[in-house]
Design a protein around this nucleic acid. Structure first.
Lengths: 113, 113
DNA sequence: AAAATTACTTCATCTGATATAATAATTATA
DNA sequence: TATAATTATTATATCAGATGAAGTAATTTT
């Protein structure tokens, strides 16, 4: 199984995390599992990449956090996508479509040959 | 016209430069123009990004350079893709297909909604 | 009792992109 | 004919995001 590194996905970790949060609030470890599932095991995001993504998104106001009300287990920090985060996600999705088209304009000729 | 920054294309500048060189030797300024053309003006690569990409690719042995035999105008440095560069390009193209599938696994759900 | 899993944090380092600026030759324009 | 624009490249410092290494802490499984 070929796996991707976060470095290859650089710039898209924001989009990936936000698209998981678009389906409802969640916390680090669970988001990590969801990313792994939704990528079919092809993208095992690094812990440090994930948590630094949370920090960046929160600093930018795209997500907000709260401590869960667990009565057992270790405390979890839950994240919610903000309205501003939703808009940012849409903008990044459009940017992705454009980036994809541009990259493919170059790559298609290679694949053909 | 929406334009992409090299930062969004981060990691794919190698692929873009190599795919231009796959069509024949060329030099900085011309490669820059070709990238602009082939991207339909959507990717005006920064000079410094381009030349630092050349330096990296050459250090890695994926391209080699020689000084052109111009009898007029400023000296140009031409680049050639090496055999190793050709293999690297193919590997990066496969990596791209995978990255694309993974990113779209997340983004598709956003676009639908 | 020890190992594995869940859950998160800190910190130092690396790489690629970029801003800024400079150099240098040629061609177009006022 | 002076100057602006274009062609062509280089040097250097800085920044942000990803990552390796390591540690903390609670719970569950073996």
């Amino acid at each position: 199984m070929v796996e991707l590194s976060s470095d290859v996905m650089r710039g898209y970790n924001d989009v990936i995390v936000l698209s998981v949060l678009a389906q409802g609030d969640s916390y680090g470890y669970e988001i990590s599992r969801r990313i792994n599932e939704r990528s079919g095991g092809r993208y095992p995001i690094k812990e440090t990449t994930l948590y630094s993504t949370f920090a960046r998104l929160e600093r930018s106001g795209y997500i907000s956090s709260y401590v869960g009300a667990e009565t057992f287990g270790r405390q979890r920090t839950y994240y919610t996508m903000t309205e501003s985060g939703r808009k940012y996600l849409l903008v990044k999705c459009e940017e992705w479509q454009l980036a994809k088209e541009v990259i493919e304009a170059f790559i298609d000729k290679i694949i053909e040959s």
